[in-house]
Design a protein around this nucleic acid. Structure first.
Lengths: 214, 214
DNA sequence: CCTACCGATCGGTAGG
DNA sequence: CCTACCGATCGGTAGG
């Protein structure tokens, strides 16, 4: 009976965190209130609260759940592409696709969370910053790989190019959220392809043509 | 006596809005509470409240004050440069400089406000969106001008290039706020100059060299 | 511009 | 997992 209760507890907790991710992507991690979350799940506040012990723990669990979704929706599909330039493009494309598909209804969870917590020191900010740094490092690694395969010119430092690609996707997320402009992802793809085509060597694996995106 | 009271009222209101801008850039426009603002100014809540009539009016006044600061700190200095490519660069440079000088302690006021309100329909979101659109349009106009002066290739649409420059500065603001990395503005300047150098024609007015920020 | 208050909601607790 | 409650704080109001 103990194991069964534990299993049920885990299921309840998973259901809570699942709903929390959706609410937080729209209302923010602070706008995610225990009362609202309990109402959405038709439970009492204190019943829900008991699964976490503090609001901060709930927020941290929510960030971790969002991370798993990001890995599943962006990184895993992009890994199908060969390392180097092809995967670098696949990562940017998958990231934009995840925004287009509205995996989170409020846009990229991590961009919203980082804007919300960049001025609030503490574990949540640290967690969000670490996860975004991981993503930037992964982009950087793929730039390095593309350069070592002589698919890309070595001229911009890997971290510099990773920053630029990251910024262009942030810009797309910003415009999509603020203006609901569905053409924004195509604009970001053109910008990224223009930059990559400008740096690609003759040995480079084929990238989509700029004209494919309008 | 009536005129004098009005003048004093205006001064008080201006002092309130001035403090509100600073708080809002750190805590957000919702985190800006009337109680906290009143405490900061050593006034009563209701005395402060009377100047606006609602929290939303206070927030709108705060956005408008931030706009005036942005115009004064970014657009006015950049207007010293000649129209076209020189001014386009001056706008990006002044925007990054305003971030470096921490004109707002919480980073670019409008980036924070747009991330906070992009999922909250209403007058504040509309106001923030309109002001950012004005800025994008101004960047676009300067791209057009540079193209008509044959300083820049006509190949990317003006709005496309404006989007890219905007995204790179957003990316710099994001990294500066989340990581406190003071080298980020130089990274953004290199990215912007690389893009502009790639599109500049032989007739182009001199731009700073990439190596100046290396 | 103030004091004194309002109903609602927040995160969190006691006790079962 | 619940009911019933806590002190603090929110935006806003009454009355002066």
């Amino acid at each position: 009976m103990g194991a069964r209760q534990t299993l049920k507890g885990q299921q309840t907790r998973a259901a809570i965190v699942d709903t929390a991710v959706t609410i937080a992507s729209i209302e923010g991690l602070e706008g995610l209130t225990i009362g609202r979350l309990a109402a959405e799940l038709a439970m009492s506040k204190s019943g829900l609260f008991g699964h976490f012990g503090s609001k901060e723990e709930l927020q941290l669990a929510t960030v971790e759940a969002a991370r798993q979704i990001f890995i599943h929706e962006v990184i895993t599909p992009a890994r199908q592409a060969a390392r180097g330039l092809a995967r670098l493009w696949a990562l940017c494309d998958a990231w934009l696709s995840y925004m287009e598909r509205e995996v989170f209804p409020g846009g990229c969870f991590f961009m919203a969370a980082s804007a919300e917590f960049d001025n609030r020191p503490g574990p949540i900010r640290d967690q969000v910053a670490a996860q975004m740094q991981e993503w930037l490092d992964y982009l950087t690694k793929n730039v390095q790989h593309a350069q070592s395969l002589v698919q890309l010119s070595g001229s911009p430092e890997p971290a510099q190019l990773a920053f630029e690609l990251h910024a262009l996707v942030l810009g797309a997320n910003w415009a999509m959220q603020l203006y609901n402009d569905r053409q924004t992802p195509a604009r970001a793809r053109r910008a990224i392809l223009a930059r990559l085509h400008g740096l690609a060597t003759p040995q480079a694996v084929p990238l989509p043509a700029l004209e494919d995106y309008g």
